[in-house]
Amino acid sequence: MNNSKQLSRLMVFACVAQKGSFTQAAESLGMTKSAVSQQVKALESELGIRVLNRTTRGVSLTALGEKLLLRCQILQDQVELAFTDIANAEENPSGRFAITFPHALEAIVVMPAIEQLCFEYPGLEPELVASDKSLDLVESDLDVAVHAGELADSSYRALPVGTMKEIFCATPLFLNRTSRPETVEELSDLPWISTGWQQAKASVLDVHSNEKSNIHLKQVARVNTLPSALELSRRHLGMVLLPDVIAKPLIKSGELVHILDTVTGPLWPVYTTHAYQADKPIHLTRFHQLVCRYFNSALI
């Protein structure tokens, strides 16, 4: 199979998957709906797998389709960067690149993003500041911030990354020693490890009814960083309220258990912010792309 011939079909498939519709993908690509459908069918035929489920309501990804889409999104990034590189052929980013970010996003989002960024732009010298406090870019002499939570009014530019929600988790051993809650009210009976920004009076949301309620959690320890809370939870000392972007990989591995999967804590929008008023440096644009990619990959 000549894989290079599949590139255009992969891009068409990615557009259909992202739009959730052959019609919308056709409009976006400037093609007919039948041409888009033929491209996807040809791709599936060549690969020998089904990548999309078709229904009268639209399309959804198969398990293999989800994996393929992640690869296609990386290809899309590279295509965009190829044209950006042409337009900025004289630029070769180098020197200090200062970034601040919350501890919650350090290991699973920021570090892999920095690794890839430095591979693509080896002249960069990253300076990383992990902080759960919002640092002012100008006052702290920073190039970009990965920010979780609502933004304060400022002249800084904000680029959306996604949204994370806090969910209750604990180790299987901890739940075996105590009991697994079946209702929201029973959450109040479990020992809870809190972070500096979390309060014992917690607001929770029932995802089915979309109703909010307040509960009082039984705090047994308080820490000032999320990694510390996670470490205490791993040592079976209590349940913890974690951002889903951190919790999901640990739940998949079996290290943690999602308690009451119909209930969530607060939602946190995530952005990258910068102070550039005109054109952004190419490496800042690429950093934002990578943060979005690794953030969304962790949620799958």
Rank of each mutant, 00 (worst) to 15 (best):
A152S: 10
I114W: 06
I108V: 13
T178E: 10
C72V: 04
L142Q: 08
L175C: 00
A98H: 07
G149E: 01
F101L: 08
R71P: 09
S155K: 01
S179Y: 07
V146C: 04
A158G: 07
D85P: 08
A148S: 09
D132S: 03
V146S: 01
Q73M: 12
A170C: 04
N88P: 13
H103M: 05
E115V: 04
V59K: 11
A63W: 07
L142V: 03
G123R: 04
I114D: 02
G149P: 04
Q78E: 14
G65V: 08
T100L: 01
E91S: 15
K67R: 15
R180W: 06
S134P: 09
F101I: 13
A148W: 02
Q73D: 14
L69E: 04
S134H: 12
E182M: 08
F83L: 11
R157K: 10
D85T: 12
R180K: 13
V146M: 05
L70F: 10
G149W: 01
T62Q: 03
V146D: 00
E139I: 03
L64P: 05
L105K: 00
A170W: 02
P126W: 00
V109K: 06
A170K: 03
I74T: 13
T55P: 13
L69C: 04
Q73C: 08
E125H: 13
S140I: 01
V79H: 09
N88Y: 08
K133L: 15
T55C: 13
F119G: 11
A82V: 08
Q76G: 12
K133Q: 15
L128F: 14
T100N: 07
P112L: 03
D141G: 03
F83C: 10
H147T: 02
T178R: 13
I99H: 01
D136Y: 02
Q76H: 07
L64K: 15
V146H: 04
G149Q: 00
L159C: 11
R54A: 05
A113I: 02
A158P: 07
S155R: 02
T84V: 11
T100V: 12
C72H: 01
A63T: 10
G123E: 11
S179I: 05
L135M: 05
F83K: 09
P181N: 08
A158H: 02
A82H: 11
E91Q: 12
A82G: 14
L135C: 02
S154I: 00
E91L: 15
P181Q: 07
E182V: 13
P160S: 09
K133F: 13
I108H: 09
A148R: 10
G162W: 02
D143M: 08
P181H: 03
E120I: 11
I86G: 14
Y121R: 05
V59F: 06
Q76Y: 06
E120M: 09
I74P: 01
H103G: 09
T62M: 06
E90M: 13
E66K: 15
T100M: 01
V146F: 03
L105R: 00
E66I: 07
L105P: 01
F119W: 13
I167S: 00
D136H: 04
